[in-house]
Computed example of a mutant assay.
Amino acid sequence: MPTSNGLPTLKIAFEKAAQTVANRSKKGTVAVFVRDENAQGVHLLSREALIPERLSVENKNQIKLAFQGSDRGVPSQVVLVVIDTDSSDTTALEAGLKAIEMCSIDYMAGPMDVTDEEMAKLVEWVKDQRAAYRPVKLVKPWKSAGSDDMGVIELDETGLKNAAGAVTASAYCARIAGILAGIPMGMSATYTSLPELTAVTERTALEQEEAIKNGKLILIHDGLQAKIARAVNSLTTILATGKEDWSRIKIVEGMDLISYYLRTTIEDQYLGRYPNTYDNKQILVTAVADYLRYLEQAGVLSPGESYAEVDYDRQLKWLNDTGIDTSAMTEQQVLEYQTGSWVFIRCGGRLVDAMEDFEVLFNNL
């Protein structure tokens, strides 16, 4: 029987990770690319006052847009990437991407005048980062074909205006990225107000529905103010192993945060530190289960639906693949058998969505 002498540093680390996820209010990071002859490089900005003075007024205003957030929250940090003004190839952009590979970024936006070639590089980079379990997501203008990816959010707007005149979708992506980075875990960006806009792309109700179903982030105007219509990413193809709610920005945000903190906490506090015994596997399972229950209490996961356990099926497959005869083994014997350096854990839960769709019946008595 395992003793109560667990791995306290691991449990404490998971508790801190859970609190970080559960309390994600005004704590997101947004990366913004601008072209400028001055102040080239990466700047970590915690407030507007730190924006480099030598930047152009237009670029300063772009960074301020990212900082603005919404009445639901603001980003805690802007990772400003100032690249060379030459956009004839993707060299400057790729150098900027390389420079921020180790930064923890939630959302990002390319330059205001991003080229098609640069946009392809941005999408490729984000997909590579997400494949490595880094939770970055890209906000980009929609082109002729959607990216069909949960890590890519595509703004489809051609009729944006503010008090100064027309605004391009490319120039407004930093604003959207900043809003998304500042949204707390318990909220979604749906119907977030955009008070500076005086006009958005005109669409009928049917056209709005069609755009959203096609993975486009669009804006609406209710006659009083502009709003984000529905906070969706570009994912439209749902595989057999996927779920339709993966097209919702809020759900993907929760998935990203939980998987990121699970991975980094295990890597930093567990990997290589302890013998790969059944007792130590159970201690890890207990720590993960406690972490998920904490998120249930915080309203991140649905109460009573989370679980963590040693993965019997994957462990059995590993034993068979390595030539071990398991035909006479009990399930418990399979679970307790040594598996070299491999640890197979399965865990899960149901992410809680925000209230977005309502049906209210009024009875006139």
Rank of each mutant, 00 (worst) to 15 (best):
residue 27 K to Q: 13
residue 47 R to T: 10
residue 35 R to I: 07
residue 61 N to H: 14
residue 13 A to D: 11
residue 39 A to E: 14
residue 34 V to L: 04
residue 11 K to L: 13
residue 98 K to W: 09
residue 104 S to R: 15
residue 33 F to P: 06
residue 42 V to S: 06
residue 23 N to K: 08
residue 76 S to D: 09
residue 44 L to C: 12
residue 93 L to W: 01
residue 48 E to K: 07
residue 82 V to E: 00
residue 63 I to H: 03
residue 82 V to H: 01
residue 81 V to K: 06
residue 41 G to N: 06
residue 46 S to C: 07
residue 32 V to R: 01
residue 76 S to I: 00
residue 94 E to V: 11
residue 17 A to D: 01
residue 23 N to P: 02
residue 101 E to Y: 12
residue 18 A to C: 00
residue 14 F to T: 07
residue 80 L to P: 07
residue 72 R to T: 05
residue 104 S to K: 14
residue 21 V to T: 09
residue 106 D to K: 07
residue 95 A to R: 10
residue 24 R to V: 00
residue 98 K to Q: 10
residue 75 P to K: 02
residue 25 S to C: 06
residue 78 V to D: 07
residue 52 P to N: 08
residue 85 T to I: 12
residue 28 G to W: 00
residue 55 L to G: 09
residue 63 I to M: 06
residue 86 D to T: 10
residue 65 L to V: 06
residue 93 L to G: 04
residue 73 G to Y: 03
residue 76 S to M: 05
residue 44 L to W: 10
residue 28 G to S: 11
residue 105 I to V: 15
residue 6 G to C: 02
residue 104 S to N: 14
residue 19 Q to Y: 09
residue 3 T to A: 06
residue 38 N to R: 13
residue 84 D to T: 09
residue 54 R to G: 06
residue 49 A to R: 11
residue 29 T to C: 13
residue 8 P to H: 08
residue 107 Y to N: 12
residue 90 T to P: 04
residue 63 I to V: 15
residue 97 L to W: 00
residue 53 E to V: 12
residue 13 A to P: 10
residue 41 G to E: 08
residue 97 L to D: 00
residue 21 V to E: 04
residue 88 S to L: 13
residue 94 E to D: 15
residue 78 V to S: 02
residue 99 A to H: 02
residue 107 Y to S: 12
residue 39 A to H: 06
residue 59 N to S: 15
residue 77 Q to D: 04
residue 8 P to R: 10
residue 100 I to Y: 03
residue 15 E to Q: 15
